[in-house]
Simulated scan of single mutants.
Amino acid sequence: MDAVSPQPAPELAPVRPVLAEAVELARAALVELGEGEVGAHLGVTFEDESAATHRFDARLPGYRGWQWAVVLAAVPDSDHVTVSELALLPGPDALIAPDWLPWDERIRAGDLTPGGLLPPRVDDVRLVPGYVATGDPVVDDLALEVGLGRKQVLSLEGRLEAAERWRTGEYGPDSEMAKAAPSTCEMCGFYLPLAGSLRVAFGVCGNELAADGHVVYAEYGCGAHSDTELPTGAGSAQFEAYDDGAVEVVALPAPVVVVEEDPASTD
């Protein structure tokens, strides 16, 4: 039995010979089904004293690694076998569809396009109620001025989630760029710290030639740090300067003229 998929311990019990030997009966049932070519017999497994399942390779387009399962039955002490059930089942290496996700969980970072609408999840723990307008123009204008005019603001969970995502992202301290940088963003003149509690560890890069406009971790860094200095000196002293506009005069040896004698002159 080749390529038989792993089975639980009860299914490893011996199959009655009358059921185990009915391979052609099981194959004939699949051929009669008419769903395509039936491949090699993969084995038979024990169901109970009166039933066993034969498995065949399913050679159907788009069903790589799937198997036909044919359940055969025979009452005790009987040599008459009948077909109980036919099914197409995934094998251990089957190509199957991914688990289903609700539509509101399928969106990933970068999926939002211009003009698209993406409301927050219902009861999103990342958001908490913000300032609610009182109707007093003086109070409400002051609230807007100090940034309290939003209906919802980030909760503690929302800030921590964002901070962890930024810290472990492309502009975090463990990125390849940061590891090769001579200094950190918190010491850079292009570093614009965020407001609020995130100010301690995050800012925005203001260097158009670096991570311009991206939130960067304070301990991130790059080669475009404001204190970066170019190596001093006029170049490597290992090689002489090469001037491709100069003309080099090379003296060539005088050519040697070989005079051949006329054979007629020797007579």
Rank of each mutant, 00 (worst) to 15 (best):
L142N: 08
D104L: 13
A163F: 02
V132E: 10
P102N: 14
V122E: 09
V138T: 12
T113P: 00
D174S: 15
E145P: 01
I96E: 13
A97P: 00
A97D: 13
M177E: 15
S175Y: 06
V125M: 01
V146I: 14
D123G: 01
M177C: 11
D99Q: 10
L142D: 12
E164N: 09
E161H: 09
L148C: 08
D140W: 09
T134A: 07
E170G: 01
R126S: 03
L144P: 00
E176F: 09
P98E: 12
R159A: 08
V125A: 06
A94E: 06
G116I: 00
L148T: 00
L142H: 13
G110H: 09
D136A: 05
K179D: 10
L154R: 15
K151H: 06
V153L: 14
G110T: 08
L112G: 08
G172S: 06
G130M: 02
W166H: 04
P114S: 13
A162Q: 07
Y131L: 00
E170W: 04
L112W: 13
P114E: 14
S155K: 06
D124I: 01
A180F: 00
T168A: 14
G110D: 10
G169F: 01
P98I: 07
P102Y: 15
W103S: 14
A133L: 04
G130N: 01
S175G: 10
R159E: 15
G130L: 02
V132S: 06
I107G: 08
L148F: 10
E170P: 04
L144Q: 13
A180H: 08
L101Q: 15
L144Y: 12
A163K: 01
Q152K: 08
D174E: 15
L148K: 03
A97G: 02
R167D: 04
M177F: 05
G135N: 03
P92G: 08
A143L: 02
A178V: 05
L127Q: 03
A109R: 06
G147C: 11
G147W: 09
Y131N: 03
K151F: 01
P120S: 10
L117H: 11
A133K: 03
T113H: 14
D123I: 00
E145Q: 15
L101C: 11
R126L: 01
P120D: 05
L117E: 12
A109L: 06
L148H: 07
S155V: 04
